[in-house]
Amino acid sequence: MNYLYFPGCSLKGTGRAYEDSILSVFKGLQLPLEELDDWNCCGATSYMAISEMKAFALSARNLALAEKQAHSRENFGLVTPCAACYLVLVKTQKYLQEFPDIGDKIKTALKSANLEYGGKVRVRHPLDVLANDFGTEKLASFVKKPLKGLKVACYYGCQIVRPYAEFDDQHNPTTMNRIMHALGARTIDWALKTRCCGGSLTGTIQEVGMRLSYILLREASRLGADVVATACPLCQFNLECYQKQMSREFEDAISIPVVYFSQLVGFAMGLPAKELGMQRLFVPFKFNPAAESVKGGIHVHS
């Protein structure tokens, strides 16, 4: 399998630690990642709210560029860690196939810019790549510092599994749980693993967005999680960066580390903290295997 890498705007900004850790982990696992040249913004949810056709065109350009960059390589994937980018790319692929009318219009538009897309790109989320291409057994063999005793709340958020569920169950996804088990960690069993974090509402109508994030953190802490693992830059930002404001607003001291799942993978592989972007966290992640505690929570063992 060959992999191209589509970072998207957030992984170059607020989600820098996601990029740091994905690149380090893939390198450590000897899975070469090659950044897509001259990629453009996916348009996220904002573009869809204004012009759906242009939103599809943005993604179509990225897909066309990926196909060109991969040229003769058969069987390649476009690794897309950001949940919004991932969904928009997958959605565009589906619409181009399912609605020939849209497909034709986009094709003509691409042509006017000397671009072409033949539908060969497979959009892949790193969770999918690690669990299904690489395999959790092989991943376990790379673990140098098992996360024994660590209780992780795996938080998938919405757009990775909904609405298309390309690689995991929509109601109870388990890919991240399986990866965490391979690292030696435990995962808490919680019903909110795919409930919305509030998305961009945290920035626009804060009183509403922050409440949605708060509910998730409150539940994770009550169930005894030591850390929340995310797979989306916006989820991570919402859950981590507003904890001080939440504590004030809801008069409830919330302080729980929120990391990217890839940071935990790298940590267990023994990669240096700096290469995983650990220094960029607001709530530091500390793990000391000796201080294993067994308090509260429902645990699912690997």
Binding site: M48, C158, Q159, R162, P163, T194, C196, G199, S200
Partner: peptide
């Protein structure tokens, strides 16, 4: 927030 819970 387009979380697609309803659609699914």
């Amino acid at each position: 927030a387009s979380c697609y819970a309803c659609t699914v």
